[in-house]
């Protein structure tokens, strides 16, 4: 049980980072923390003790596999996470060019 709680703590560390840091790059890192905690959680819920990797080798003696579905989910989620991170960092570079700073407090052209 303790590992799941640690996952959730990692999730909240990421959220804390997003809410408190002022630097755009640090916000992106905080977002990554949140996503990685979720990936870790997904892998953990598919884990079974003393089970082997879910690869069919044609050997009938192996019957005890870990759950492959969360692993497939995590792989897909990592690919999606790559796309979002790429977008975010591109935005960060463009914001740096337009505003000349990474400080989120100075990026205030929108009001109301």
């Amino acid at each position: 049980m303790i590992v799941y709680i640690l996952c959730f703590i990692l999730f909240q560390v990421g959220l804390f980072g997003i809410l408190t840091s002022r630097n755009i790059i640090k916000i992106v890192i905080g977002l990554s923390f949140m996503e990685f905690s979720v990936y870790l959680f997904l892998v953990l819920i598919g884990y079974i003790e003393n089970a082997s990797a879910p690869i069919l080798t044609g050997n009938p003696a192996q019957t005890n596999f870990v759950d492959p579905l969360p692993q497939a989910m995590v792989l897909t989620a990592i690919v999606i996470g790559l796309a979002t991170k790429g977008m975010l960092l591109t935005m960060a570079i463009r914001i740096y060019k337009k505003f000349g700073t990474f400080d989120i407090r100075k990026v205030t052209s929108l009001k109301g």
């Binding site: 790429g86 960092l89 591109t90 570079i93 463009r94 060019k97």
Partner: peptide, 13 residues
């Protein structure tokens, strides 16, 4: 492509 786009953008800046 992502890598090249970022490099080109940096060169342009």
């Amino acid at each position: 492509t992502i890598f090249l786009a970022l490099v080109i953008y940096k060169e342009e800046i």
